[in-house]
Amino acid sequence: MIRYLRLKLHQIGRATKRSTFLNKYFPRFRDRVYWAGDRASFARAGFIGAFCMMLPVPFQMVLGSIFAYYARANIPLATALAWITNPLTMWPIWYGGYIFGTWILGTPDLFHASQGIVIGSTEWFENVFPHIWQPFFIGNSTLGLIFGTTLYVIIGHFNWHFLRNLFSKKNRA
């Protein structure tokens, strides 16, 4: 099973590296640091992926990949970490960020005061969102910075041997 997954990852990587669009607009895309990486590349990717995971915006995965490109970080790791927030997990994660934001700002939780109003409706955006947007964005951004920094330290200092062994050529047999 692991050999199959590595083969598929290799095939996807090859097809991605051959993309004319990516090679035209991102000329350094073939550089090894984006795909194999080193300690610093993995640590930066951990920060970027965890930060983008918490951002309450659509397409965090694409955003994480673009940030990883410009930060010379490992693109697959940054993309995979940003993928943690998916349609099933984003509501509890973002609600937790909102609660954290209300705690930081010392504001009441107004999310539950909107009972009976459909989330995402025009009425919700007119009556509820203007009151909750600050704790929502500040809480999620702050948690993204905290998680990203924690992951940066863990990957950069404590867990390097595990990652090196995982991606080494000796284990690909």
Rank of each mutant, 00 (worst) to 15 (best):
W103K: 04
F111C: 00
H131L: 10
M61S: 06
E126R: 07
L22H: 05
F51G: 02
Y98F: 14
T107D: 05
G120D: 11
Q134I: 10
R32E: 13
L22W: 13
T89R: 08
F129K: 01
I117T: 06
Y98T: 02
N23H: 03
A82D: 07
Q134K: 08
A45Q: 02
S114N: 10
R18A: 13
P56Y: 10
F29L: 08
G37K: 03
K17E: 10
Q60S: 11
A78R: 11
H112T: 06
T20Y: 13
G64Y: 01
Y25M: 05
V62W: 09
A73S: 08
I48Y: 01
P92G: 06
F67S: 00
A82H: 06
P92V: 12
P108V: 00
R32S: 15
Y95F: 15
T89N: 04
W35P: 15
R14W: 08
S65N: 04
P87V: 13
D31A: 06
P27A: 03
F136T: 00
A80H: 06
N23K: 14
L22I: 07
W35R: 01
K24D: 13
A68D: 04
F26N: 05
P92N: 11
I119V: 15
N74E: 06
S114C: 14
L77D: 02
R32K: 11
G96N: 06
M54L: 10
L77F: 08
I66P: 07
L55R: 12
P76V: 11
P27C: 09
W103Q: 09
L22F: 14
M54W: 15
D38M: 03
Y98M: 01
T85W: 01
F47L: 12
G96Y: 12
T79W: 09
D31P: 09
P76G: 09
I132A: 00
G101M: 05
F136L: 05
A78H: 14
T89W: 12
P27E: 03
G37V: 04
G97L: 02
W35N: 10
T79M: 12
W133L: 00
F111R: 00
F26C: 03
I119C: 04
R14G: 03
F47C: 03
F47E: 02
M61P: 04
I99R: 11
Y95W: 12
P87F: 10
I119S: 05
E126M: 10
A113E: 10
